[in-house]
Amino acid sequence: MCPESVEQVLTRYNDSRRCLVEVLQDIQDREGYLPEEAIRRVAERLDVPLIEVYRVANFYKSFTLRPRGKHVLTVCKGTACHVRGADRLLDELRGQLQIESGETTEDGQFTVEAVNCVGACALGPVVVVDGEYHGHMTPHKLRGLVASLQES
């Protein structure tokens, strides 16, 4: 990440201590994760102890301190998705990509995540692929989706 972008994010939030969570979110949106140098810079400019920024980054589920793959496959594990077979989707991805949820493939193409609820419960089971929602998902459809991403 070029150093300017961290500075720009902080400036947009007027170096507000309250906005620490939002600042980290915006940095992650740009970079895909929270790089160490960015966290250090945030701590410096907001005048917050470095360990506090790390606590916040570790506490909230949506932050990641490791780079993610080119494509992020988010499997919803909400109750409605669970009872409609979300586990099978994780089986499918584990079989296809040989990674567990929370991991990234060695070639850096895919990250698989399991999250608690994406709030599209009526369409369960739901998989979010690079921010796009896919409802009524089946292992078969998911295999097709992964294949189309591999080709792209």
């Binding site: 201590r17 620490l20 969570v21 506090e52 916040v56 506490f59 909230y60």
Partner: peptide, 20 residues
Amino acid sequence: AGAFVCGESTALMASVEGKV
């Protein structure tokens, strides 16, 4: 930023303040 416990009022307010 994704924390179920933030549905609890005191936790939510800490989160609004930019804290854990």
